[in-house]
Design a protein around this nucleic acid. Structure first.
Lengths: 253, 253
DNA sequence: CGATGGATTGACAATATTCAAAGACAGTGG
DNA sequence: CCACTGTCTTTGAATATTGTCAATCCATCG
């Protein structure tokens, strides 16, 4: 059997039985390649699929009336994109590739079949949804109650940490392929201010800025700046598996 | 059979079979009363239950190092509190009552039983989690890319709209029992600035301020200020029910 | 080579925070 | 019934933070 994208994703958490593997494999469609800067879906379109990210980065965002933009989340290899839209007939935001990207589509309305068929997968999907919420909450706190310095440092650390866990084909988890425009739109600040803040951190040798993105040079230093605690990124998979009586993965999350 | 809190909650969405009713009823524990300003749980505590709100308001929040506070979400009658923590062993935030409140506890680890037993309830739980995400995303946009005026107007409209749908025992959905401190902490601004903004809206006869909270006087006017679109609050329950082949509720959401 | 999208800079303006003080109000206990 | 307390609200003035505008730089790409 091929190791489809979503199977790899779930085996990251737990050991799947043959049934589960076949189920997922039958539902995942062939991967699709997208080039950098491509708009994958738009607000208002019918939300019939979600995607797993096989490689590359993407972001979801909303265009505001005044022409500005709010980036809601970034997606790295291993992430599932569009689970949010389970509750809605139409897409509530736009999705854009940040780099060249390969995505694996999965039909949304088949999710209910998965829930019925596999106790394990059902619970894992729910766990993922809960972790997604935790990420959103942390971003909320970032926007609401942190200074620009803290925002930037915190966000960079979060993405690096998420890359750490995703690390499938990713070489250097300290390098983030983000433009400053994107960073600013994710953190609700102006590009100019993002730039100044980033250069401030660069002066302190905490980050490096290149034409191909941002590099974290000193995670501990950044952690001091941001007060970063990665707990919200570490879902308690073991506890869940124990509760539902499933075997843990040999390759812990 | 008694109509437990969570049954009422789900019957809001769909017609439950006798099995589902019995299942939920067997799991829900006796309601607990909390007085205004009571801390229900704290960050770091074991997250063994979630709650449905039978009456009153509550909020989840995080205390920051500098002494400030970020309110993550408010909960009104009919809401489920703590689903987020499904993925975590310990609570990731604090929960506080805003008014006198009655909550119905539900053991977290029994959720997996519900998933296994009832196709309908499983899907509804997932839908609720997805809608929760949509609410968080909208708050994110609020914090990131809107002015203070827009933030306040948008937030008030959201809460009023959520009350509209919840309206079980609520008399006046235009009245929100919020202090200005709470509002400010939810919107990531200072109390002083929240106060000034609120008084600006009061000058324009859009809101009224009393000792017992904030009242919306002119929803259309506020909608003009905020660019509010309630779509993200209206989950597509019908589409879901059709997909899983369940009968719709006579009392549509 | 010019076009393009991002990065950078300085000057200025708008927005929001802080600090400090005072007013309003409900609840408490004498 | 009254003072006393604590919480929430309101206000002004000074300050800090962040955004806007406009220009320039720089690398890449066709």
């Amino acid at each position: 059997m091929t190791d489809s994208c979503i199977i790899r994703h779930f085996e990251h958490y737990a050991e799947l039985g043959q049934d589960d593997r076949e189920l997922l494999d039958s539902l995942e469609k062939t991967p699709k390649d997208f080039s950098k800067g491509q708009l994958i879906w738009q607000q208002g379109m019918e939300s019939d699929h979600f995607y797993t990210v096989r490689s590359g980065w993407a972001c979801s965002f909303r265009n505001m009336e005044d022409g500005s933009r709010q980036v809601q989340d970034l997606y790295v290899p291993g992430d599932i994109v569009g689970l949010r839209e389970f509750a809605f007939r139409r897409r509530v935001s736009n999705l854009l590739t940040v780099t060249n990207t390969t995505l694996c589509p999965f039909p949304k309305n088949r999710l209910t079949d998965v829930f019925s068929t596999s106790r394990l997968l059902c619970n894992l999907f729910f766990l993922i949804a809960a972790r997604d919420q935790a990420i959103l909450v942390e971003r909320l706190i970032n926007l609401g109650r942190r200074t620009a310095r803290e925002k930037v440092a915190h966000f960079l650390l979060e993405m690096a940490h998420r890359l750490d866990k995703a690390c499938m084909d990713v070489h250097d988890c300290n390098h983030l392929p983000l433009t400053q425009v994107l960073l600013a739109d994710a953190l609700g600040m102006s590009t100019v201010h993002a730039n100044r803040t980033l250069n401030e951190l660069k002066q302190e040798s905490l980050t490096a800025l290149g034409p191909d993105g941002i590099t974290l040079l000193d995670r501990d230093g950044l952690k001091d700046v941001a007060g970063f605690d990665p707990e919200y990124l570490d879902a308690d998979v073991e506890g869940l598996l124990k509760n539902i009586g499933a075997p843990a993965s040999s390759q812990p999350a």
